[in-house]
Write a protein that binds this DNA or RNA. Structure first.
Lengths: 217, 217
DNA sequence: TCTTGTATAGGACTTAAGCCCTATTTTCAT
DNA sequence: ATGAAAATAGGGCTTAAGTCCTATACAAGA
């Protein structure tokens, strides 16, 4: 069993130290870095490629949500757990949209935090029980809204269609035929997809799609 | 636990029926199709995408080795187990080269065949104990041959280098710089790679590389 | 109502990608 | 020694891919 590498992000040195202490006690976890603001968080995440980022939301400059977006954009395989002081439900959906996999209060019991880290490393997602109700109602709202968006990386439904075919090895012409649209439209979608995923061409997009499990192998 | 889907290929209806009977008794296995020759085998394999193909070697027309190559070329994730009447070691290495993962005699005990199927589905490889010696000596020969070839799909060492970078999302120019060769040479290698893998462009090659585990994610 | 997001598509352009040849050099296997 | 495979590279060519901009139509949120 490999240790789970964790990057701690918080603007308060005290909080960072506390978290590091708690996590260091744990056998299967190793803290590989600490960042004191959003910029450093993104920088370190890309450099250290940790399994998990513990991300404080309230930070001066680039906040936790922005940092989450940036990291997820570059390395979708990194799991991000958001930390908040109190129940700030206004951030919840923004965070989910940004790609965070967990949302925990800072006064969480250490053993539960550890559990959450292991869970997210396994690909699961966590929110505090007090918020599950919110989640469900939001989910209901979204699905009644004839399934608007809620796609990975902010991709639209159509963009996901196109990306899937790209990851299948199809050319623009082939995609156009399969989706009954013009090659021009396919190109437009692709330009948007590349921009959203932060990649340069279809090959990188295909790889990204596989890595971030937008498509299955 | 999902059932393992199996395609049976043999030109003798009796053998097919026998195998199907045996395998149908097994809980975790479901026979999804049968083919009576190499052409049908390739056709059905691509259509049904079974986990495992049980492939007879001696068939009129496209034989088992050719069919194995074709299937592996199109869908490297399908596991292929070769069936032979008697110890025909002259085919063994050809089969391994073609991408077969198992090599069993037709008079194998049913429970061992089942075991082999489960093993191959898990990504393991099997040859009869009587042939392991052959394997080892061949392996020794090849490695004494200063590690010549023995690369997936008949790719050369350099081609694997190039393919790895393609699957990393690099452009021809980037690959050229990293490998200290000209862009022209990269293109030449790529043309050869496409031909060998049976794909049309770098995106398909990248996907193929990931699927056939030439590169890791 | 006005605006925003999505899907569609065309014009016009640049360039990376890919193909087909030929050719040289090195390295091995025979 | 000789021949084959592998790695290198260039010429010359075609086309797919990708960018930037504009534009229309529709749906839905504010």
């Amino acid at each position: 069993m490999k240790k789970i590498s964790v990057l701690i992000v918080d603007d308060h040195a005290l909080v960072r130290e506390g978290l590091a202490k708690i996590l260091s006690m744990e056998e299967g976890i190793s803290v590989v870095g600490e960042a004191e603001n959003g910029e450093r968080a993104v920088e370190l995440a890309l450099k250290l490629k940790p399994d998990i980022v513990l991300m404080d939301i309230n930070m001066p400059g680039i906040n936790g949500i922005e940092a989450t977006k940036m990291i997820k954009n570059e390395m979708p395989e990194i799991g991000i757990i958001a930390l908040t002081i109190h129940d700030q439900e206004e951030y919840l959906f923004e965070l989910i949209k940004a790609g965070a996999s967990g949302y925990v209060l800072k006064d969480i019991r250490p053993d539960l935090l550890v559990q959450t880290i292991f869970g997210v490393a396994r690909g699961e997602s966590f929110v505090p029980p007090s918020m599950t109700t919110k989640i469900f109602s939001e989910l209901a709202r979204l699905s009644s809204l004839s399934g608007r968006n809620s796609f990975p990386q902010g991709l639209t439904r159509r963009e996901v269609d196109v990306l899937r075919l790209v990851a299948h090895g199809d050319s623009n012409r082939a995609i156009a035929k399969k989706l009954f649209i013009s090659e021009k439209t396919v190109k437009n979608h692709l330009t948007n997809i590349f921009q959203k995923l932060g990649v340069e061409d279809r090959t990188q997009a295909a790889i990204h799609a596989v890595k971030s499990k937008i498509v299955e192998l």
